[in-house]
Computed example of a mutant assay.
Amino acid sequence: MMRYILITFLFIGSYSVSNAQEALTWHTDMNEAYEIANSENKPLMLFFTGSDWCGWCTRLQNEVFKTSDFKNWAKQNVVLVELDFPRRKQLERELQIQNYQLQKIFKVTGYPSVHFAKPGLAQDGKKNLNSLGKTGYVRGGAQKWLEVANNIVAPVN
Rank of each mutant, 00 (worst) to 15 (best):
E32C: 01
L91Y: 01
L80E: 06
L6P: 08
G120W: 10
M30P: 04
R88I: 01
Q96D: 09
V79A: 08
Q76K: 14
P155E: 07
L129Q: 07
L132H: 12
K71N: 06
N99P: 05
N19L: 14
D29N: 15
W73I: 06
N150H: 05
N150P: 06
V156F: 15
L44D: 04
Q103P: 01
Q123M: 10
V78D: 02
D124L: 05
K71T: 13
G140I: 01
T67L: 09
A117I: 02
V153L: 07
R3W: 08
N19C: 09
I36Y: 00
H27K: 04
V64D: 00
T109Y: 01
L102M: 15
L146V: 03
G50Y: 00
A23E: 15
L129T: 06
Y111L: 09
F11N: 03
N130V: 11
E92F: 10
I105W: 01
R3V: 13
A20M: 09
E94D: 12
S18A: 14
K66N: 13
N130A: 09
S16T: 12
S39T: 13
S14W: 10
R139F: 02
N41M: 09
L24S: 10
A122M: 08
I97W: 08
L102V: 05
E35N: 08
S113Q: 09
V79Q: 06
A20L: 14
L83N: 13
L91M: 12
S131R: 11
L132C: 13
N151V: 05
I105L: 14
N72P: 00
M2S: 12
A20F: 13
P43N: 12
L91W: 00
V114L: 14
Q101I: 05
K127P: 06
W53K: 08
V17H: 11
Y137F: 15
T28R: 13
S14V: 11
G140W: 03
K75P: 10
T58W: 01
L146H: 08
R3I: 13
D84P: 04
L121V: 00
E40S: 08
K66R: 14
S113A: 13
L44S: 04
T25E: 14
Q90A: 05
D84K: 03
G13N: 10
P119F: 09
G55F: 03
E40H: 04
N41V: 02
A33K: 12
K144A: 14
L80D: 07
T58A: 08
K71Q: 13
V148D: 11
R59Y: 02
T25A: 12
Q61N: 15
A20Q: 12
A117M: 10
S113K: 07
N41P: 01
V81T: 11
F70M: 00
T109G: 07
L83Q: 09
A74R: 00
F85T: 02
E92D: 15
K89E: 10
Y100T: 02
S18R: 12
S18V: 03
T28M: 07
T8N: 04
L24M: 11
I97H: 06
L91D: 02
A23G: 05
T58S: 10
A37W: 00
T49Q: 11
P112G: 02
T8C: 07
T58D: 10
L46V: 08
W26F: 15
T135S: 11
G110M: 05
W73M: 09
